[in-house]
Computed example of a mutant assay.
Amino acid sequence: MTTKTDPAMQDLKPTVWIGKQGCTDAAVEEIVAQLKKRKTIKIKWLQNTDVDPETVAAAARAVLVEVRGRTMVLTEAAKKGKK
């Protein structure tokens, strides 16, 4: 995770919401689809939902950029062999 806040990340609107069922397989599939479209996405989750951002990032094969409260920012992982 980065410690420096990028102003562009603050302007991102959440594109995925994790509800009371938690991070389901369907939510992970949606995260992967959103990452293919946008490269960087913001995810929010409900206050009464227990979500581990690092687990979500690993399940989506993404890089966890930042976590603030109940919001995380993920970016697409770099592909091997790509320069």
Rank of each mutant, 00 (worst) to 15 (best):
3 T>M: 10
83 K>H: 12
37 K>E: 13
25 D>L: 11
33 A>P: 00
69 G>W: 08
68 R>E: 11
44 K>S: 05
81 G>M: 08
2 T>S: 13
41 I>G: 02
68 R>Y: 13
4 K>A: 08
52 D>H: 12
18 I>P: 01
80 K>W: 10
66 E>H: 14
49 T>I: 03
67 V>T: 03
74 L>M: 08
19 G>C: 02
5 T>L: 15
8 A>W: 13
64 L>H: 03
74 L>F: 07
47 Q>R: 12
70 R>G: 06
36 K>S: 08
34 Q>Y: 08
55 T>E: 14
20 K>W: 13
81 G>F: 06
34 Q>I: 00
18 I>D: 01
68 R>A: 10
77 A>K: 15
83 K>W: 15
58 A>F: 15
68 R>P: 00
26 A>T: 07
60 A>L: 04
58 A>W: 15
77 A>E: 12
65 V>R: 14
53 P>I: 04
26 A>Y: 10
78 A>C: 09
10 Q>V: 13
20 K>R: 13
8 A>R: 14
60 A>E: 05
24 T>W: 06
50 D>S: 12
82 K>N: 12
77 A>L: 14
15 T>C: 09
41 I>T: 03
63 V>M: 11
8 A>G: 00
13 K>A: 12
3 T>A: 07
67 V>I: 02
63 V>E: 14
18 I>N: 01
2 T>Q: 14
81 G>S: 07
10 Q>K: 12
79 K>R: 11
58 A>I: 12
13 K>H: 13
34 Q>L: 08
2 T>V: 14
8 A>E: 15
47 Q>M: 09
50 D>V: 10
71 T>P: 02
34 Q>A: 13
55 T>H: 10
34 Q>V: 03
29 E>T: 06
73 V>E: 03
48 N>R: 15
62 A>G: 05
18 I>S: 03
41 I>N: 02
35 L>T: 02
49 T>H: 00
18 I>T: 01
65 V>F: 08
9 M>C: 09
35 L>P: 01
60 A>R: 00
58 A>Y: 15
54 E>K: 14
47 Q>W: 12
45 W>H: 01
39 K>C: 07
43 I>C: 00
80 K>T: 09
79 K>A: 10
12 L>F: 06
25 D>M: 10
66 E>D: 11
55 T>M: 11
18 I>M: 04
56 V>M: 07
33 A>Y: 06
22 G>C: 06
69 G>N: 10
64 L>I: 01
40 T>F: 07
20 K>D: 09
81 G>Y: 07
6 D>I: 06
45 W>G: 02
60 A>D: 05
31 I>C: 03
31 I>K: 01
59 A>Q: 10
76 E>K: 15
80 K>C: 01
19 G>W: 05
8 A>P: 02
